[in-house]
Design a binder for these strands. Structure first.
Lengths: 202, 202, 202, 202
DNA sequence: GATGAATGAGGGTTCATTCAT
DNA sequence: CATGAATGAACCCTCATTCAT
């Protein structure tokens, strides 16, 4: 087993345990056991429990940012860029549901440092959305609030799905949130996901 | 000092400490000290740290529910009831900012039992809103999602304010959220708060 | 059991365990057990293992300084003051043999902070002796070295006794050290302990 | 790199790290890194951290004993032998200051086994000095104590120098210690180092 | 011989909770 | 009711040592 795969097995074990137990109830012992290695091995790869959690946050962040950049690149109008960004975020959440759950649900109440870290990331994301909104003609402060509201709404929907996975359809809910905000921002009905994708194609 | 006032001083001390430190970093020692009594006294009034926190959750819940019922009673149309409910919630948040912060921000990551408790309450609230939405002509599933999205958006805005209290105006942001969702639900521009209040008067 | 006596029982248990095991091998669990209490109780009285050890250092320091001041007060000539100081130190070592052993033998290799603490104390003591020596006509640098040499010699003799308690007589060795240094400093034969004591009487 | 030179580079790295950090704070990782090799390599040359430290003790011991034997050989009178022995020890300390520091300062508090080992060596040395002293007419027990006192004084002076290297002159202090003990033993003023060396010459 | 990832016993410390006073 | 010393399970983390490559 290479050191990279060991690190990844620890990371995915941590993801599972954090998802199930939350930050504080998750013990290094459990994570190591879930990864099939000893406690000491955990510390070969992560200096700290918090650093391990942060790696998960960063993993999600990286995926989101990558997806957003890829999705925005081919777009030309502000509305299209906004739509593409939201679609990209949505897509990552749908693809990495457990990871999203860990990051969006369990960072709160973990450690101030981690909360700050995620907060900074969400600020980045919110500012991006806000600046798109501003370009779409929405006034500055409404754009800021709107962006945060969107982040919160999305987070809550993930939370709902995290609590009752069998009773709800995350994809459908996410689409509904998009329609809701789209109208709320006076941008009309949102472009269907398929249309966005079509326009992404070069 | 009467039994009741001692309990309330503990509760308000707990509110302050939980707001500042979060659930896990808040220690019984700190709470007791903030309340000006000994650790043992805390346990005369609350069987458990979690029960104390739950009492804060319930306090907010009680205020919200009372306010909603009072606001809805005089309303006749579904839209007016919805508007009244949202306005009532909003008003409680603005009046009890620290308490809202504790409950909405710090319940996550506390303990499964407490998370469940808050969740059940938010479900109740969301269902209320959802049923109003449904009566306003929004289809069932969209109503459910919409209600949760609204709860999440509101929570996030409280979070934003909790993090940067001097840079943002909670009341203004809450009003903006209302406009956003009102349009999102195709209900037109929201009634001004003053109008709602006027119609509340008997 | 009062809190003061509890603290003292912990301190004396710590003294025993540190004497037997040295700083690093001594565990909080052992100390607590030796004191007949739980691990947590140790931390009610000492914030840290190091703080507990430091309390022992300070205990010895306090006894030494008290004894020195009492012994010097009635003396008038520099030689008599020097003799009184050395006799006082000697007396404390003989009365508190285990404590002396802990402090003089086991501080080294404990923690930098503790080593510094003891070092500062020994510097104080050495400077006191050095200044007496200087007043006895010994030149400055020789006085400094002489004082440290005396401290080291005394420490080593304690060490010898710590290692082979049944084969050596600490009191006799300490007396021999005094004679040795007295001649080394050209002060003639040292005053007998009884004489010093006699002159202490008012 | 030959086996021997690798071992020596590890030994000198260990000397540096132990001098800087003390026994417990020095980690195998640091030593290996300082020697420019991997952790595993360390264990090719030393079965144990303690064994590595012991090798340093023995290194100093070997140098001291070699120097003493060389210095004593040409001497004929007991006083000259004593002077030669002390001068030899002194010379080694001055030539191998870092090593002396490691052994004399950091063995205490390391491990019982290592402390015993150094103790046995110091006993050997002390007995040698004590037997010379006895031949110089000093009575048995005074000789033993004197020898230990001398070892302790020397160690403390090394310690002083280890703590404040820039403020003190090890060579000068060592010379002063010699004068002090020489007078303490009623042997008059000590022979100058140069005289000893002259008499060493064949 | 050389490597460095893996190990796991054991370390110090925390803190919600209890209970005798 | 009020107290606060006492508790001990459980936590995160370290590091000397091993061994397959």
């Amino acid at each position: 087993m290479t050191t990279e795969s060991r690190r990844e097995s620890l990371l995915s074990a941590a993801q599972r345990v954090f998802a199930r137990e939350g930050y504080h109830r998750a013990g290094i012992r459990q994570i190591a056991e879930a990864a099939g290695c000893a406690v000491g091995t955990f510390y070969v790869y992560f200096p700290t429990k918090g650093d391990c959690f942060r790696a998960l946050i960063d993993q999600l962040y990286h995926r989101v940012m990558t997806a957003i950049q890829a999705a925005r690149a081919p777009q030309t109008t502000p509305v299209a860029k906004l739509a593409a960004s939201l679609a990209a975020v949505t897509e990552v959440l749908l693809n990495d549901q457990e990871l999203s759950r860990v990051v969006l649900v369990h960072t709160r109440g973990s450690e101030p440092e981690l909360e700050d870290h995620l907060w900074a990331i969400q600020q980045t994301l919110a500012r991006l959305v806000a600046s798109d909104l501003a370009e779409c003609g929405i006034d500055q402060s409404a754009a800021t609030v709107g962006a945060h509201a969107w982040v919160g709404a999305l987070g809550e929907v993930v939370h709902l799905w995290a609590r009752e996975p069998q009773e709800c359809d995350l994809a459908g809910m996410v689409a509904e949130v998009k329609r809701l905000f789209w109208r709320g921002w006076n941008l009309g009905e949102p472009p269907a996901l398929s249309q966005v994708r079509a326009s992404e194609a070069r």
